[in-house]
Design a protein around this nucleic acid. Sequence first.
DNA 1: ACATTATGTAAATAATTTTTAACATCTGGA
DNA 2: TCCAGATGTTAAAAATTATTTACATAATGT
Lengths: 73, 73
Amino acid sequence: MQSRPKITNNIRHLRFTSNEMSQNTLASKVGVTRQTIATIEKAKYYPTLELAFLIARVFNREISDVFKFEFEN
Amino acid sequence: MQSRPKITNNIRHLRFTSNEMSQNTLASKVGVTRQTIATIEKAKYYPTLELAFLIARVFNREISDVFKFEFEN
DNA sequence: ACATTATGTAAATAATTTTTAACATCTGGA
DNA sequence: TCCAGATGTTAAAAATTATTTACATAATGT
C-alpha cells in the first residue's frame, strides 16, 4: 500500500444518534482506548479491518455504512 | 483491541473466478507485495481497512462480501 | 466553587501489518 | 530438459496502528 486514499467515517454522528454514546463507552465496547476512537474519528489514521468490523457492529451497520472510501477515479 | 476474533476471506476463490488472477496481479493492482496477499489469504494476519477496501474493489464487491467476521456470541 | 464527564492532543512505547529478500516446490510449455 | 510463472514460507527491517500516561479545555450538575 503506498498512495493513501482517503477513508472518511461517520462514527461521531453514529455515536450521537445512538443514545449519545461517549467515546469512552464506544471504546470499551470494542476493547480499545478512548484515544484510539478519538484518533480514528478525526481520521488521523485508519483502523484495522478487525476494529472496523467491531465498530460497525456496535451500531448495527455494515462497514461500508460507517466508513467511506474515496476512490479518486 | 485485544481478544482477536476470526476474520475469514474468500480472496483465493475470487481470484480464480476473476480470470484466474494471480497473487502477483492482485498485489500490483492494490499496490502491495505478493507476500502480503499470500499472508492475508492464509489469514495469518488481518489487512488494514484501507487494503480491505482496495481488494474488495478489484473484485467489484463490498468488504463484507470478501471478508467475514466470525462473531462469537 | 467544586467535582465529574467528555473531548482534544502530544509523546513515548508496544503491537501489528507490510516490505524486502531469499529459497523452496510444483506445473506447463518451448 | 530447461525455463518461466505461480505459490509457500521464513526472517529481519520498516511502516503503521494502538496503548499508555499525561495534561489541557469545556460543559454540566450539585
